[in-house]
């Protein structure tokens, strides 16, 4: 069969058959990725789940221990609260940035995209250590404040410091989905609203923001979920009061060799993430269809 699709003498039925074939081909094309995921993700994950129920002996002991310990519950709650703050801070920074990317000229847009992508090329540890230099009591920010005659602020080893550091690391994951949605928004809709008498802010809030919601949802979910598992940034920029769950997992597995408890903590975090996705997914789907309809 000709590889060239949809020549004039193809019937609709032939075209559909070609599409189905493509779908089956696509399945084969995905095989390497699926196999890789099964080997390096599904299999180890299954072992972690299994060990959380079987070590040191079969039963729910690890989960009873987890939910019975006030330290664990406090840290779990803190992990979610901190992730929420990071998501909010990322959104506030990312939204205007993504918008700017859609309205500037070609060259400037290239520079803006580069600025988003550059952090991907640096190791997270390097970036976090750079934040240490900026945020510490004798660091750049506080030296500057002192120079102005202002009193220094406590940034490092506080939750604020952790939120700042994590927001910077995660910002690209918020900007890119929002940008990709904003790029597709037809700005003539705004002009139409204006021509019908809407004030600029109203046109923005009632037309533009709802249309960009799918990007916000996607970005927020990615950032929130990545935040939940963060380890190195809270460890280096935070103090005891910003310890996140991953540090406790590390402690259980690496220093206590308690794979069961460490596994249980990982499973709790995973299940919490799934629940969150389950809540968010219908919301996103709904918004997507709405966008298409409005278009």
């Amino acid at each position: 069969m000709s590889a060239l699709p949809q020549t004039d003498n193809q019937t609709a039925g032939e075209r559909a058959a070609a599409r189905r074939l493509n779908l089956r081909d696509a399945g084969w094309l995905a095989a390497p990725a699926v196999l890789l995921l099964a080997a390096v993700l599904v299999y180890p994950l299954a072992i972690i789940v299994l060990r959380s129920f079987t070590e040191p002996e079969p039963g729910l002991q690890n989960y009873i221990w987890f939910f019975g310990s006030s330290v664990n519950m406090a840290v779990l709650q803190r992990t979610f609260v901190l992730s929420g703050w990071v998501t909010l801070a990322s959104l506030i920074c990312a939204y205007p940035y993504a918008y700017a990317m859609t309205v500037v000229g070609k060259n400037l847009r290239l520079i803006l995209i580069l600025c988003v992508l550059v952090p991907f090329w640096l190791s997270g540890v390097v970036r976090t250590l750079a934040w240490v230099i900026l945020l510490q009591d004798s660091g750049v920010i506080n030296s500057f404040l002192r120079g102005l005659g202002l009193s220094p602020v406590k940034l490092i080893r506080t939750q604020l410091g952790v939120v700042i550091g994590m927001t910077q690391v995660l910002l690209p994951f918020m900007i890119l989905p929002i940008y990709s949605v904003m790029k597709g928004i037809d700005t003539r809709l705004l002009q139409a609203a204006r021509s019908l008498g809407a004030k600029p802010w109203r046109a923005f809030l009632q037309i533009y923001v709802p249309l960009s919601l799918p990007g916000i949802y996607a970005g927020a979910i990615i950032v929130f979920i990545l935040s939940l598992g963060f380890y190195i940034t809270p460890a280096l920029l935070g103090g005891p009061r910003s310890t996140m769950l991953s540090s406790l997992v590390q402690n259980q597995v690496l220093s206590l060799l308690n794979w069961g408890r460490g596994g249980a903590m990982g499973v709790v975090l995973l299940v919490a993430t799934f629940i969150l996705l389950a809540i968010a997914a219908p919301l996103m789907r709904q918004k997507h269809t709405q966008t298409r309809r409005e278009k």
């Binding site: 406090a74 840290v75 005891p240 402690n251 220093s255």
Partner: peptide, 11 residues
């Protein structure tokens, strides 16, 4: 380790 970990996580 349990008590130390509680100290280090601010509890």
């Amino acid at each position: 380790s349990e008590k130390w970990s509680a100290l280090l996580s601010g509890n």
